[in-house]
Each structure stands twice: as structure tokens, then as C-alpha cells.
């Protein structure tokens, strides 16, 4: 696998006002059910117009981090107990999801979560719930979504529950776009999709980033894919950020290669060495 060639794509991703932060998460701690400590001090930043990847294994805390930002934790009986979250310079951890969407920060949840009993077009329209700028503007935006996702136009009248996984993922992203977001928190877009479809969706994400100026925070297990499209990455492990850096640097880091990209340096390692490795990696935190 030639990672270097892939990561050079990053240079072509255009940037808007490099450096200004749209989102910053400062040392948050999340507790579920008042007892289960899930995030133990996570900090991260997203620059305006950036694509940032949040990587890590199952249960590392990626989804929890995203939900803490979009304030969907409460429905799952979780709570941010320490730290602050700032969106466009203002603290947002006490806002309702509704208010946050109104301000331009929306989450596309893991597993798509389209409204199965609504048609694709109705799904898109629900995304415009918080908007107050009139039917004409909403209609124009639906056309824009169809331009990005031509397959949704073909399926506009089908119930979302009957469409394919890829179409549902497109529908979920399209629905989020309908709220005119400045930032999308995209949770595991590759889940359960064929590699070709994943590629297609990541291409659209890059397109949206470039042409609409939408910033993305991207939680992914598919490290290889995420690092190809993101500019910066954070690696979470056990509710902590254990490593962060430029996507290119991360994809060349020996530990990341070993643990997340499945590329070993030199000869294949035995399980015993693996254990040793894992122990050493923990110390990075």
C-alpha cells in the first residue's frame, strides 16, 4: 500500500481562512449514567474549512466525543462533567441540539439513521426544520443536494427504509446539508458500505468541504481512508487522545502504521512482540 502518494492529495485540498478555529474542545470528561467514565479529558481543535479525522478502535470514545459536541449525549444519559466546548468562539455545551443546529453545527450519526418511513425527499426536508428563510430557499437547496448526490434524485420518492446503505448515507449527509451547516460532525460514514461507495462518499465530503466551505470532524475506524482525506488527525484510545498530528505525518508514523493501518515495518511480528508494542504505545498518552 503506497500511503505517501495518497497523502500527497492533501495538498490539493483548498483551505478557507487557514488557522481560525471553528471548534475547540478543551479537556472534556464524559460520564454515562453518572458512573461510567468514558472520556477522560479529550481536547481537539478544528480549523475553519478543515477536515479533521478522529481515529481509534471500537469503544475508544469517538462517537461519545461527537455526541458531546452536538449535545446528543443527554438522550443517552450521558453528561459532560468537565471541560468546555467552543463553537465559533462561544461555549456551547449547555445548548440544546436544536439551537446548535441553528448555529450551524450538525451531526450525521453513526448508522445513517434516516427516517425509514419518510421518503428521501421528506428526509431532506426534515433537515431544514430549523430554517426560517422560506420555501424558495429550501427548494433551491434541495436541488443543490440533488446535484451533489444524483442518486438521491432518482430515489426521491422511495421510502428511505427501502434504499441501499450507500443511498441512506448520502441521504443522511444531504439531510444535514439542508440545515446550511458551517460544520458537520460525521460519524463513521464508511460503516457497512462497499469500498467503492465509501470512496464515493469521501469524494463528496471533500467536494463539500472545498465548494461549500463546510468544516468536517470525521470519526472513522477506516484509518487509511480517513487520513487520505483529512488534513489533521487525532487518535483516541480508552477515552484519551494518545496522539495527534498532520494526516501525512500520522500515516507515516510507525505506531499508527502498525496498529491502525496494518502495515508492519520489516518482517511480520509475533503476537508476543505485539503485546510489548501495545504496552509501549500506552505510554504515549
Amino acid at each position: 500500500m503506497n500511503l505517501t502518494a495518497d497523502s500527497q492529495d492533501q495538498i490539493r485540498v483548498p483551505s478557507i481562512a487557514q488557522g481560525e478555529r471553528i471548534l475547540s474542545v478543551n479537556n472534556i470528561e464524559v460520564i454515562y449514567n453518572r458512573v461510567i467514565l468514558v472520556l477522560k479529558g479529550v481536547s481537539l481543535e478544528v480549523t475553519r474549512g478543515g477536515i479533521v479525522a478522529l481515529l481509534g478502535a471500537n469503544g475508544a470514545g469517538k462517537t461519545t466525543t461527537l455526541k458531546a459536541i452536538s449535545n446528543l449525549l443527554q438522550a443517552g444519559r450521558g453528561e459532560v462533567t468537565k471541560g468546555t466546548i467552543e463553537f465559533e468562539g462561544q461555549q456551547v455545551q449547555h445548548l440544546s441540539p436544536n439551537e446548535l443546529v441553528r448555529r450551524g453545527c450538525i451531526q450525521v450519526m453513526e448508522g445513517r439513521m434516516c427516517f425509514g418511513h419518510l421518503t428521501i425527499e421528506e428526509n431532506l426536508l426534515t433537515g431544514a426544520f430549523t430554517r426560517r428563510d422560506g420555501q424558495a430557499a429550501i427548494k433551491a437547496d434541495i436541488e443543490k443536494v440533488y446535484a451533489y448526490f444524483p442518486r438521491l434524485r432518482e430515489r426521491r420518492a422511495s421510502l428511505a427504509g427501502y434504499t441501499s446503505g450507500g443511498e441512506q448515507q448520502m441521504c443522511a449527509i444531504g439531510r444535514a446539508l439542508m440545515s446550511k451547516p458551517k460544520m458537520i460532525l460525521l460519524d463513521e460514514p464508511s460503516m457497512g458500505l462497499a469500498p467503492q461507495v465509501v470512496e464515493e462518499i469521501f469524494e463528496i465530503v471533500r467536494d463539500l468541504n472545498a465548494r461549500e466551505g463546510v468544516s468536517f470532524l470525521l470519526a472513522e475506524q477506516n484509518t487509511n481512508m480517513a487520513l487520505r482525506y483529512a488534513r489533521y488527525g487525532y487518535i483516541l484510545e480508552n477515552g484519551r487522545v494518545v496522539m495527534d498530528g498532520d494526516a501525512q505525518a500520522l500515516s507515516q508514523n510507525a505506531d499508527v502504521k502498525e496498529f491502525y493501518l496494518g502495515v508492519a515495518e520489516g518482517k511480520r511480528k509475533s503476537f508476543r512482540e505485539g503485546k510489548h508494542y501495545r504496552r509501549r504505545k500506552r505510554w504515549l498518552a
Partner: peptide
């Protein structure tokens, strides 16, 4: 618009919350 949102909520509370309903 409200009717559509009602049906969306009926489908999934969490997804409805996530789109700002």
C-alpha cells in the same frame, strides 16, 4: 413542516434530535 417533523420523531427520536428538531 411540523407534521413531517412529527413523523420523523415517530421514526427515531435520536435522529430527529440530531437534525435539530
Amino acid at each position: 413542516r411540523i407534521g413531517r417533523a412529527l413523523r420523523a420523531v415517530a421514526d427515531s427520536h435520536e435522529a430527529a434530535l440530531s437534525v435539530g428538531i
